[in-house]
Write a protein that binds this DNA or RNA. Structure first.
Lengths: 223, 223
DNA sequence: GAGCGTATCTGTGTATCCACTTATCCAGTT
DNA sequence: AACTGGATAAGTGGATACACAGATACGCTC
């Protein structure tokens, strides 16, 4: 599965486990923004000492998922409305760049694979759960990965993770509209056209247009 | 001084000192890519235990300045030629976005301040040292900060830090050409015009054009 | 009765210690 | 003579213990 482009840099077993455990909880929206993460609690929960958990906090803080206030513990980061917009703005230009750079590597097989991804996405949306969010991310990252720019992809994936809880909430409120398929079909279409500049613009618009929809619903918890 | 937009998120005294110490050394190019960073060495150097140094390593790894290989220590990260290009590509779209968003906040005072920044940059370039690099960063970040997008600015600043050692080498090889002033004067000009879309394009071109110049010189150490 | 100060408790941050992994060197065998 | 395997040493990662800082609650004073 190509989804997890986020590989914590140099992380060893114990610490990696702590990292993955907490990140999953955060992505699933198990905590609300502002909730305190108590190292000892999590440590015992996964059967290790506070130490690897702390290191995991640090990693997560670097990704913007939590905030560590000196001597005052670690809290789940929340995005203000402005920050949600900002994240989408950053995604739009970065993914726009990615799709432009991906263009030379587009061929028939790739386009077919993307179509299959869209099918999976649509099917996931009907399971009612938020599997759709995962599939949606996978679709976007799939395209980005074709740019052959590891750091760029990593950065984009990191932004996806940050907004994931908000996407889930959105999905749970509005039953994912059928227009989503058409929206993304357009992306495949412009990839097929071979016009890199146009693809960049289409991708940018696609992403920026999503933000306002999301913003009306999203606000998981205080700040 | 507005320069240091990179604030390690939640870092406490001892750890912060370790972080700043190592980061400064890295930015100044004191180490070469691939050099091992020995925790104990650095710890005694700044008079603390290995522990805060370890945490500092983690922070630096998250920023891409070092690489931690499990059980095999911490080495100074080096960029391949491709990665240098990639970094400039990312800078170009992100700073392009920043300048576009900054446009509504441009006024006469801001333009005058930027002119003064350019003066400082030019003066610094004549001191022969690589103060120029610092001033150059300050100039770019100054513009970005006008976008009023904290996360965006942070991300851009982080990219600047990564390529800073390479910029220094470049500066030391070629005596910074006088064209640098003109290059950046163009940016102020387009800001003055008030055309946000055009400003974005000019910024993107400005940054992308720098990469190939740099790439010929840069390669500080093995990989 | 309200506000401020102090004391206690909770919890984070640092250090030391221990175990385990890795790398290097030497010896033995092919 | 070269390569491989084993042993030893060095260094990294994890846990536990300790110290300090912050928050909250209670008491005293105004």
């Amino acid at each position: 599965m190509a989804a997890d482009a986020i590989e914590p840099l140099g992380i060893t077993t114990a610490e990696e486990e702590a990292y993955r455990h907490i990140q999953r909880a955060l992505r699933m929206g198990r905590y609300r923004a502002g909730d305190r993460l108590i190292p000892e609690e999590i440590a015992t929960e996964i059967g290790m000492s506070r130490m690897p958990v702390r290191e995991a906090f640090r990693q997560l803080a670097a990704e913007g998922l939590v905030v560590i206030r000196p001597n005052r513990g670690c809290i789940v980061a929340g995005l203000t409305l402005d920050e949600i917009y900002e994240t989408f703005e950053m995604r739009s230009v970065l993914e726009g760049l990615a799709v432009r750079l991906a263009m030379p590597h587009i061929d028939v097989e790739v386009l077919e694979e993307l179509e299959r991804q869209l099918d999976r996405m649509e099917r996931a949306s009907q399971t009612g759960s938020s599997d759709w969010v995962v599939r949606h991310q996978a679709f976007h990252l799939q395209i980005c990965q074709l740019s052959n720019r590891p750091k760029l992809v990593r950065q984009i994936a990191s932004l996806h993770v940050v907004i994931e809880p908000y996407l889930r909430i959105w999905f749970d409120y509005v039953d994912k509209p059928a227009s989503a398929r058409a929206e993304h079909e357009i992306l495949i279409e412009v990839l097929r056209s071979g016009d890199a500049g146009k693809a960049e613009i289409v991708m940018r618009d696609h992403i920026v247009e999503t933000a306002p929809l999301l913003a009306n619903f999203a606000s998981p918890g205080r700040r």
